[in-house]
C-alpha cells in the first residue's frame, strides 16, 4: 500500500519536473519560458520530496521529516529567483513575442 503511495507521488513529481523542462524548451520567448520552471518544477520537487519522506519514514527507524525543509526552501526561493531573473530580463530589454498584450505597461529603468 505504502509502496503504491510512494510510486504515485514519485511519478507525479517526475511528470511535473519533465513538464517544467519541456516548457523551458518549447516556449517562444523568455517571459513565457519562466512559467514552466518556477511553477511546475517547484511542485514536482515538493511531490518528489514528499515521496522521499514517506520512503525514509517507512524503511528506516523513526520518522524522517527533514525532507520538508528542502520543499519549504524551494517554495520560498522559487518566486524570488524568478523575480530576479525577470527583472534582469526587463533591464536587458529582451524582446517578447509580438502578440504579447500590454507591453506599454513596462516602464523604463532609472
Amino acid at each position: 500500500m505504502i509502496e503504491w503511495i510512494i510510486s504515485i507521488l514519485l511519478l507525479i513529481g517526475g511528470c511535473f519536473i519533465l513538464v517544467g523542462s519541456i516548457g523551458l524548451v518549447k516556449m517562444p520567448d523568455f517571459f513565457m519560458r519562466l512559467h514552466g520552471p518556477t511553477k511546475a518544477t517547484t511542485l514536482g520537487m515538493a511531490s518528489l520530496l514528499t515521496a522521499a519522506m514517506v520512503f525514509f519514514s517507512t524503511t528506516q527507524a523513526g520518522l524522517s521529516a527533514k525532507e520538508i525543509l528542502i520543499s519549504l526552501f524551494l517554495l520560498l526561493t522559487a518566486p524570488i529567483s524568478a523575480y530576479m531573473m525577470i527583472k534582469s530580463a526587463i533591464h536587458h530589454k529582451l524582446a517578447s513575442i509580438e502578440r504579447t498584450k500590454g507591453k506599454d505597461n513596462i516602464e523604463d529603468d532609472v
Binding site: 517544467g20 523542462s21 523551458l24 523568455f30 519560458r33 519562466l34 520552471p37 518544477t41 529567483s81 531573473m85 534582469s88 530580463a89 536587458h92 529582451l94
Partner: peptide
C-alpha cells in the same frame, strides 16, 4: 537570462 534560467532549473 535564458541561460541563467536553464542553470536555475
Amino acid at each position: 537570462p535564458d541561460r541563467i534560467l536553464a542553470l536555475d532549473t
